[in-house]
Each structure stands twice: as C-alpha cells, then as structure tokens.
Design a binder for these strands. Sequence first.
DNA 1: AGTATATCGTTTGAATTCAAACTATATTTC
DNA 2: GAAATATAGTTTGAATTCAAACGATATACT
Lengths: 162, 162
Amino acid sequence: MRNGSGRSRRGRNGETTAESIKFGPLATWVGFNLRMAQESAFQAFSRRSQDIGESPGRFATLTLIARNPGISQTDLSLAAGRDKSSLTPVVESLVRRGLVARKRMRGDRRTYCLNLTPAGKKTLGLLTRCALRHERNLDRLIGGRDRKRFIEILKKIAAEIE
Amino acid sequence: MRNGSGRSRRGRNGETTAESIKFGPLATWVGFNLRMAQESAFQAFSRRSQDIGESPGRFATLTLIARNPGISQTDLSLAAGRDKSSLTPVVESLVRRGLVARKRMRGDRRTYCLNLTPAGKKTLGLLTRCALRHERNLDRLIGGRDRKRFIEILKKIAAEIE
DNA sequence: AGTATATCGTTTGAATTCAAACTATATTTC
DNA sequence: GAAATATAGTTTGAATTCAAACGATATACT
C-alpha cells in the first residue's frame, strides 16, 4: 500500500520506522531525549520483569523496604520520588500478596512500619537478577568509560533542577 | 513533630534513626536514576509551561506538526514515541482549541493531515521560549563539555535498548 | 487542659499512558 | 470483482501518577 505521506517505511523486521521525520529543536534538547530514553528503558525492564509478575515501580519499592527495614510510607515515597498517595495501592498490593508486612509504628499510630516477608525477599531476589541483566544491557550502550559521569549527571538533574 | 525532614525513630532493633535513606543497588543503576532525572525535568518543565496552559506532551506534538506539515497521527505517534491511541485526546484537544487544523488526506480517507493554525504557531513560539529557558537550566547542570555525549547516550538508549 | 497546627496515610478526581478490540477505509489476492 | 488482509484512527479498560481534600493522630502553643 501507499506510504501515507511518504514519511515512513518498513524496517528490517517489519516494524515501521519513522525515517524522514524532522525533529527540529527536539533533536538536541535534553528534556525530550531524556523522556524517550527513560520510556524505552522502562518498557524494556517491564518486559523483563513481567514474567515475575511485578512492575518497575514495585521493584523499587521492594528494594527500598529491604534496605530500610521499618520505613514508613511517606519516607518511602520521598525516596522513590513519588507522591505518597501513589504508594497506597502499591503497598496495598504488596501486603495483600504477602510480600510486605505492615504494622503500625510503636508510639505513633498514624505511621506504618514496612518490612519484607520471606516471600518478599525471594521475589526481590528474582527481580534483582532481572535488573542486573537489564543493567548489563544498558552498560553495553553507554560504555564503561562514560557510565560514572552519566549517572552523576542524572543524579544532578534529579536533585537540582528547578 | 519529632523528626522534621528525616526518617522517624523506629526503635528497638538497634536500627538507628538514619536521617538518610539507603538506596542499595538503586544508587548506581541507570534505570532508576534515569527515571528520577526524567521525572524531575518533566515536572520542572510542566511548572514552566503551565502558565501557557499546555503540557510537555502537547508541546512535543506541536513542534512535530510544525516541522512536518501534513503529518498523520500515526507518524506523529511514532515520532513522539507514544502509542497512536494516546494521541487521540491530545490532537482532539489541540483541534478543539484551534491550535491545529485537521483534514482528511486526499486519496486516503482513513488518514488525517495535521497542520498548525496561526494560533498554534503563536502558542508554539511561547512554548519554545519556555523550553529554551528550561534547556539553559539543564545545560548548567550538565556542563557544556559533556552535553553532546550525554545526548548521544540518551538517543542510543532510546533507539537500541531491548 | 484546650485549641491550633502539623503529619500520616487514604480517598477522590484528573491526566497520561499502553494494549487490545473495534470501525472504516485501502490494498492485495484469487 | 469478491474475499482476505492491512492500515488509520477511535474506543475501552487497566495502570500509574499527581494534587487536593480528608480523617485520625500527634505535637505545639497558650
């Protein structure tokens, strides 16, 4: 069939590749490229982790609970860079499926106290191996020489952008 | 409150009241830091552009239409890295508010043909100035020496991650 | 003590996204 | 030319997120 406006073609594997699209200033802007890279990496990890039945967000949550036993949901949300209300369904799901134990904190009945269960630790182990493969893949693209600086810059953006 | 910005005391275990969260492997993983940086940059641009009444997604859409007059929604979605169904409400909103003109393509009545209206061009101009300030801010964090390589890596991740 | 203020987690509502199913058109095959 | 196949865009449903409002609890101030 005809090719729309003549702007795309069939790639090697049959996927359509936008080939002659003009990106204008988007091509050299950090914001746009950051979004595209994050989206791709996120999707790649989602595919990897879906066999285990978890999402990238729940993986970060499990890791932070493992590394900070007894953490509260608010501190967890700060660490994960998400609003505390986003964490309500995430934690609820992990608790319901027996990966996380949630108790009220002694001395402050507003606050929860989160810990991994043995099942949670096991699942986190699987996810971590999965993440290591994903990271090796990313490393291959970044190259060992630039990796440290690359992460430094990402951290700086996360911490200091206004 | 007892413990202003840090974590709350959790007592007994000898686990001290660490003021800072332990990130474990997340600290050095690309995937996590990419997400945190993208989220921060996205929020920063959202704040900047909200006076104009547009979102980052609609900005990318306007730019791509401006640079590729007559582009179809499917090609647009490929270029913007989003599913075509995500574009339906975006384009609908831009058309309804008179920023984009949408016509059927001659010779293929399935396909739309998108162009900016004068009002769309004006809004894009405002957004572009806004984006330039945002990019200057990012440049300040990245540093001129590393910027080119940084963007190269982001593009590589977006294009080649599996 | 009693009132005002702050914090913790939840609820609700709006956005944004993907994926699959759907419609309408177009092209290809027989 | 009719049937099978492919494509453009929309609809629907599920996730994920933020932000504001809320109830329960805790702390601070008088």
